[in-house]
C-alpha cells in the first residue's frame, strides 16, 4: 500500500491544461494542415499530383488537395519544384462535411462547427461513443485510445468509450471498412439508439486512404453511413482528434487556436 502511494507521488499530476490552457507541445517535425498556393502554379504543372501515392491532389483547372485522402507523407512537397505546397504546424484538421476537406486556397479552412442547439443539449455534456475498427491498422485506434489516459483525460469532457452500441450515442469509426467488416459495422450502427452520431477518424475511414480503390474495401465509411465529423490524418495526432471532438460538442470556440 505504501509503495503504491509513493509511486503515485513520484508520477505526479500529468493531465494537460488544454483546452483551457495551451495545447501540449508538438514535435518540431510535426506535419499539420497542408498549405497550397494554386494561384502561383504554372499552368500544366502536375508534379505534385503525379507524386501523390493516394491521388489526393487533383490538378485539373485548379490545384485541389483532398485533406480527407492525404496520408501526410509529404511526397508532394519533395516533388514541387516551386515550393508551393508546405505542411504547416496547425493540428486543427477536423471538419463537418466531406467537401470542407477539399483545400483550394492557402488561407481558407472551414473548422468543424458545433452541433446544433438541440443536439448539444443531448450530447454536449455526455457523449458516449462505441469505437468500431473496420480495417484500421491500429495506429488511429492507438491514438484514440491514448485520449483515455491520464495525460489527456477525455472523461473530463463527458466523452467516454463504452462497451456496447446499446449504451452509445454514436460510433467512432476507423479504417477503410473492408467488405469483411461491412455487415458488422452496419449492425453496430443499427444497434445504436437514435439520435446518434458517426465520427470518422483517419484517412482510411474518410476515403479509404492508402487502400482507396481496393476491391476488398469500401473506401471508408462515408458511402455507408451519414457522417457528422471527419478527422483527417494518418493517423491524426491525439490533439487533432481531441480538438475535433471538442469542437463538435461546442467546447472550443470557432476559430480558437
Amino acid at each position: 500500500m505504501l509503495n503504491t502511494l509513493l509511486a503515485r507521488i513520484q508520477q505526479k499530476h500529468r493531465t494537460i491544461a488544454f483546452p483551457d490552457g495551451p495545447p501540449p507541445p508538438l514535435p518540431d517535425r510535426f506535419a499539420g494542415r497542408p498549405v497550397i498556393h494554386p494561384e502561383r502554379c504554372p499552368s500544366g504543372c502536375r508534379c505534385c499530383a503525379d507524386a501523390c501515392p493516394v491521388g489526393a491532389i487533383r490538378q485539373t483547372d485548379r490545384l485541389r488537395l483532398d485533406l480527407g485522402q492525404c496520408i501526410f507523407c509529404m511526397e508532394c512537397v519533395a516533388a514541387c519544384p516551386h515550393h508551393h505546397i508546405t505542411f504547416s504546424r496547425d493540428y486543427r484538421l477536423a471538419a463537418r462535411k466531406r467537401t470542407d476537406l477539399y483545400l483550394e486556397n492557402p488561407d481558407e479552412f472551414r473548422f468543424a462547427a458545433a452541433l446544433d442547439h438541440h443536439a448539444r443539449r443531448l450530447f454536449g455534456r455526455s457523449l458516449k461513443l462505441r469505437q468500431v475498427c473496420a480495417g484500421g491498422c491500429n495506429a488511429c485506434e492507438a491514438d484514440v485510445n491514448v485520449l483515455g489516459t491520464v495525460g489527456w483525460d477525455l472523461g473530463r469532457f463527458g466523452i467516454q468509450f463504452v462497451a456496447s452500441p446499446r449504451h452509445a450515442d454514436g460510433l467512432l469509426v476507423t479504417g477503410p471498412v473492408p467488405e469483411n467488416m461491412r455487415q458488422a459495422l452496419l449492425k453496430t450502427y443499427e444497434a445504436t439508439p437514435s439520435p446518434k452520431l458517426v465520427i470518422a477518424v483517419g484517412a482510411c475511414a474518410i476515403s479509404g486512404g492508402i487502400y482507396n480503390g481496393h476491391e476488398e474495401v469500401h473506401n471508408g465509411v462515408c458511402d455507408l453511413l451519414p457522417v457528422d465529423l471527419l478527422i483527417p490524418g494518418c493517423p491524426p495526432h491525439p490533439l487533432t482528434i481531441l480538438d475535433g471532438l471538442l469542437r463538435l460538442i461546442g467546447r472550443i470556440d470557432k476559430n480558437k487556436t
Binding site: 480495417g135 467488416m181 474495401v217
Partner: peptide, 17 residues
C-alpha cells in the same frame, strides 16, 4: 475481418503506394 488485399496489390510493384 481486417483483410484489405495488401499482398495482392504488391504484385508487380514496387510502385508509389
Amino acid at each position: 475481418y481486417q483483410h484489405r488485399g495488401i499482398e495482392r496489390h504488391l504484385t508487380s510493384g514496387p510502385d508509389p503506394r
